[in-house]
Simulated scan of single mutants.
Amino acid sequence: MNSSKKFFAEGLGTFALVLFGCGAATIASISTSGPDGIGLLGISLAFGLSVVVMAYTIGPISGCHINPAISIAMLVAGKLSMKDTIGYIIAQCIGAIGAAGLLYLIATGSAGFAMPEWGLGSNGWGTGYLGEYNMQSALIAEFAFTFLFLLVIFGTTAKNASPIMAGLAIGISLALIHMVAIPITGTSVNPARSLGPALFAGGIALEQLWLFIVAPVAGGVCAALVRNIFLDD
Rank of each mutant, 00 (worst) to 15 (best):
T57N: 06
I153W: 08
I89H: 05
C93P: 03
F15T: 02
I43H: 02
L17M: 12
M82K: 15
A201Q: 06
A158F: 08
S122N: 07
F154P: 00
D84E: 15
A16D: 04
A9M: 13
I43S: 02
K6Y: 08
Q208R: 14
K6F: 07
F20S: 06
G112K: 06
N190G: 08
F7V: 08
G203K: 12
A16P: 02
P35I: 00
V152D: 01
V221S: 07
D36E: 15
G155H: 10
G98T: 06
N67Y: 10
P116E: 06
G119Q: 11
A46M: 04
H178W: 05
I213F: 13
I106G: 11
E207I: 04
T156R: 10
E117A: 15
I58D: 01
I43W: 03
I66Q: 04
D232C: 05
T57E: 04
L150T: 06
G13K: 06
G155W: 09
G42Y: 07
L130H: 10
S33R: 07
S110D: 12
F8I: 15
I27T: 05
S173Y: 08
V53A: 05
L148P: 00
G95F: 06
L19P: 03
P68I: 03
L225K: 11
I90C: 10
G128K: 10
C64F: 03
G13D: 07
G23S: 11
F113Q: 09
L195F: 14
M165R: 09
K159R: 13
F20A: 10
G119W: 06
A28T: 03
S188N: 10
L195N: 02
